[in-house]
Design a binder for these strands. Sequence first.
DNA 1: GCAGAAACTTGAACGATTGCAGTTTCTGAC
DNA 2: GTCAGAAACTGCAATCGTTCAAGTTTCTGC
Lengths: 206, 206
Amino acid sequence: MPDTPSTGRRERKKAATRQAIADAALELFLEHGFDRVSVRDVAERADVSTTTLFAHFPGKEALVFDREAQVEASLTAAVRERPEGQGVVEALRAHALASWVRLDSDPRRERFAALVQQTPALREYWERMWMRHAGALSAAIAAELGREPDDLACSAMARFVLEVPALATTRHDPLASVETVFDLLIHGWQASQLGSGDAAEDTREA
Amino acid sequence: MPDTPSTGRRERKKAATRQAIADAALELFLEHGFDRVSVRDVAERADVSTTTLFAHFPGKEALVFDREAQVEASLTAAVRERPEGQGVVEALRAHALASWVRLDSDPRRERFAALVQQTPALREYWERMWMRHAGALSAAIAAELGREPDDLACSAMARFVLEVPALATTRHDPLASVETVFDLLIHGWQASQLGSGDAAEDTREA
DNA sequence: GCAGAAACTTGAACGATTGCAGTTTCTGAC
DNA sequence: GTCAGAAACTGCAATCGTTCAAGTTTCTGC
């Protein structure tokens, strides 16, 4: 029953305490709220010293977001391992629809999302973290298209795609919003009055 | 010689201490670096208590960015008071070129920019702050076009336009990059291989 | 000229984070 | 086996950002 077949006892124990800390943190945060729980409380519950806690996580907010590596991996995988003949942007659209905006029926995910949404510190931390994936995503896109890793069109696409959840999740129909924004990205704003000077003039009502 | 002709002595004094604090902060930060200067140091230099300091600024990073109200004002003004017949997006492009990406010859601005760029905490704070203008900008755009204030195309445009500096300033030719990204926004990514599934397939080289 | 609001002060907290000096626990080499 | 050293962990104290409570000074409007 080796969960981590590769490594020795040491690393296993290390992973165990890390997990214990993360579990304790989530439990306490969900029960009492992020700001009403101190790092010491978490350390206490996990039965480690606060020093140890900070050896495993770079800060209080990070306690909530382990799993970030996997998120980035699945993001670049969506681009790299897309179906034959599917465009990069289409793959990202599909990934966005499937993974981001699903108001999950899983009650654990739901409570977690609520916690993050209701805690400003966590909201901000999440956004910062999320946008840091822009580099990796951009690189993945560029690689798929055989372009320079710092190709501007790819970097821009990456950043803009990552903005989609922020734009869509607050709307009454998130799924439709995702579609709309992707259509805008593909076809541009010119078709929507916004793009050209002369077209815009006709339709103003100010 | 009244710099603030409108208000009484009280408000003038208040503005004076606020300014004293901001000046002290910038001076110390530029000299020793943001992280090597404590809030207490700044308060000391400005000859106020730290409590007073926090009555004027919501946090340490905010000491560096007074002037944010004006930035947002000039942003929405660029949209509202654009030349006759100019499109909203064109106005924003012009504003971006004129105000954001200018590697100023003014040595003070340059040192300031370097400070922000070299300090992660400040970089992140700036980005968060910057993106908070999305709401106002989106509303301004929607108003100009006579659309609902929460129109998705306008919100998306606002957020994406605000990403432009982050995309452009790190490049060797920031001005050209601004142009490119605006062109992408207007005409969409479909023309750049990225947009459609079938076109993308032909040009891959993996 | 006075009541009250506003700006400021002192002093003490609280919580996150870091540094330091040790102790225990594993690992790899002999 | 065992032993040296690395790694994980502990306790404690310090620093720093931030806030609170209670009181003092300084303006403003009446």
